[in-house]
Amino acid sequence: MTNGLSREQVVNGSLLALLLAAPLIAAALDEPFYVSLATRVAILALAGVGLNLALGYGGMVSFGHAAFFGLGGYVAGIAAFHAFEESAFLTWPFTIGGSDQLLVVWTVTALVVALVALAIGAVSLRTSGVYFIMITLAFAQMIYYLAISLPTYGGEDGLSIYLRNQLPMGDSAEPLTFFFVCYGLLLLALFVSARLVASRFGAALQCARMNEVRLATLGIAPFPVKLTAFVLSAVITGIAGALFADLNGFVGPSMLSWHRSGEIMIFVILGGVGRLFGPLAGAALFILLESFVGGFTDRWQLILGAVLLAVVLFARGGLIGLLAGKLRHG
């Protein structure tokens, strides 16, 4: 296996090719529903890639990533709302208006999510294990209730995005174009993750997961390493949230709910914790089950539960582990 591609690389490449082929074929057959389905997979996979950085590589079991996903969604929604109304988000001390530009939305999402994640992480990372899970959940619930209590932005009903935020070139309202945008960002996030994990920072992060005592003893304080990873992870998930709101033309508190945190976690676990393409495999399987089994029965989550159980009990490397074999470490 020293020459050519490893089995995992082949599996990863096939997944990417499949995800690219599906909407192209669907568009050719004039089936826009499947284009939108593939877009969902790409976006949710992106959210999972974000969580995987914290959970898979850093061992930080965040049960609050919906907070970042939803924040991204609300940035997209609120920006579009003010752009549509031609009103201002803030008038004092300076004026901040809305925006219908995706690039602006993403930049603001990254900044807002990074700040919130920095605050949440700085508090949460002082705990570990089950306390960390609970405290991240608690923060996410706080943001959830904050969103519900904002009548300007729809409160419990959420906020519709009447016009999808725009690209500097191309028409983002065109389903296939929007798919390419999401797919491109997924590729970018995968690439950045791969580089990060293989870098010095990645080595330190993984050591923090395996043995924090050892990391500190070598002279690297674990806290800043984990906090950095947590913030990066949140930003990726936040961008996914912004895309998700634009895809659906809607953002509501459900994007911030703990169910959503659980779902993102399921993508990662289903696909393979700490496997680069795990979230993509997991999100794809999740959406397939939801759409196709969900088409037959409302109880599709029973099947999901059984699959999840099987993965946790028998295939610790998740789907990727099943397809590509055990992870090899260097």
Partner: peptide, 12 residues
């Protein structure tokens, strides 16, 4: 050398 800094080049 420089702790955890180095986010891009593969350490291997």
């Amino acid at each position: 050398e420089r702790g955890a800094f180095g986010f891009w080049s593969p350490v291997r």
